[in-house]
Design a binder for these strands. Structure first.
Lengths: 238, 238
DNA sequence: ATAATAGTGTCTTTTAGACAATATCAC
DNA sequence: GTGATATTGTCTAAAAGACACTATTAT
């Protein structure tokens, strides 16, 4: 099973153990803010500090499966996120004081965020506004991971249909626009936004249903289209 | 140093060892083709098969440093690539028959590719056209990694100044256009391309020098500007 | 009626893409 | 001169952004 050890130590079994973990940045739009699902650590190191949910990958587990499992275990988030993608791997030698750890970070988008329920080695779990979290400080290098995730999400809204992953199965153009406004932290012209998203090929599918929310004309409900890339893209700096 | 082991086995030291490796997709534009730097494996498994250069990360080594080191050891590529970025981590349970391995893949751009010199556990090292490599088949899941890398490179040419990483320190607009044409596999109008790249803010810096290559008016030489994102972006489907 | 939101249309500016025209070289 | 490449300019169509206007609701 093991190949011949090379003189300079290429035999895999001879190498000092690395731990491989996953960390999940689950984002949602709630209370007019971009929020991340964070836990309060119940163990050392960084006991009591805010951190991303995550943990060790099991011997026969896919990385993405580990991300979904850890999210479920530590925060009680049962539903599979509307979108899950690998973000980046963080593996600097000193990032975990216990041992050498390479952590594969995932980015998840969650619509209609349920209230979290802490479990595993999490003392608490809560949705926290991204700005608040970064200002408060996070365990390990999780602030860097969170910042990278937010930047990825912001960029991807421009040229993909990812914004719909923050919305439920059926949504109005206004709800989608609200997502964009919150994630980008910018005002968008409702009329131009409406024209752009409804004319982008394969982005939105009409359901025929409408919805009334407060005063004003009822809004048409849409479902995500099959297009993943947005042509033409939406633009961020108006 | 080690925290209290949790009942369900969260003690990192108790976890079965993962190996962490890096694999490097070094790309260049040579002979009117997008080529990748590949090695021929000198060991089992996949002895004699083409593969990406790569290997185990050392205990106190940054992931990116491991990528540069493995590239140097296995292919003799001494120069630091003009661009190096993390691509994605591949860690499916069965991807290496010897043991559980998570491989952090890197994408590198190399201008003026030098002839490689094999070393380490590489029996040979050569620049291979991407299409040829994918058709020939690669060891492990390296074909998937290579395909992902090419797709990343193609996309990034649109909205970043990454294309200049395939050129030397000084280059003409034609040379840059040739990079785009080869990577995208498409013809671009020389006149519109010229106007777009020279008018994109901070993309190119005039050097004042010119260069003559064959017949035709001498071409102005440029250097990469400090801008990393391209505004407005170049577009792929003409 | 008034206010609020949804949706359509119109106008101007900007950009993309096609392509004419000029500049400067090798031969 | 011819032929090739570099560079600038011109034209048209598409898209972005500003914003007037209509539609439909709650109050």
């Amino acid at each position: 099973m093991t190949s011949t050890p090379a003189p300079d130590g290429y035999d895999p079994a001879a190498y000092p153990p690395f731990a491989v973990t996953v960390d999940v940045v689950a984002l949602t739009v709630r209370d007019d803010a971009l929020q991340a699902l964070l836990i309060t650590r119940a163990e050392e190191p960084f006991l009591g500090r805010l951190a991303l949910p995550g943990g060790f990958v099991r011997p026969d587990e896919e990385l993405s499966a580990a991300a979904i499992r850890e999210l479920s275990e530590e925060t009680g988030l049962r539903r599979t996120p509307a979108h899950l993608e690998q973000l980046k791997t963080y593996g600097s030698p000193g990032r975990d004081p216990r041992m050498r750890v390479a952590s594969v970070a995932y980015l998840a988008m969650v619509p209609n965020p349920p209230e979290p329920r802490p479990g595993g080695d999490a003392a608490a779990a809560a949705w926290v506004a991204v700005g608040t979290a970064l200002a408060a400080g996070l365990a390990f290098d999780h602030a860097t991971i969170l910042a990278d995730a937010v930047e990825r999400a912001r960029g991807k809204l421009e040229y993909t249909s990812l914004g719909t992953a923050f919305c439920g199965p059926e949504f109005t153009v206004s709800q989608l626009r609200h997502v964009y406004e919150v994630v980008w932290g910018a005002r968008l012209d409702p009329r131009n936004f409406h024209r752009k998203v409804t004319s982008a090929e394969g982005f939105l599918l009409e359901t025929g249903h409408t919805m009334i929310d407060g005063p004003g004309r009822p809004a048409a409900l849409y479902r995500r289209g099959r297009a993943t890339t947005l042509i033409p893209p939406l633009t961020r700096e108006p």
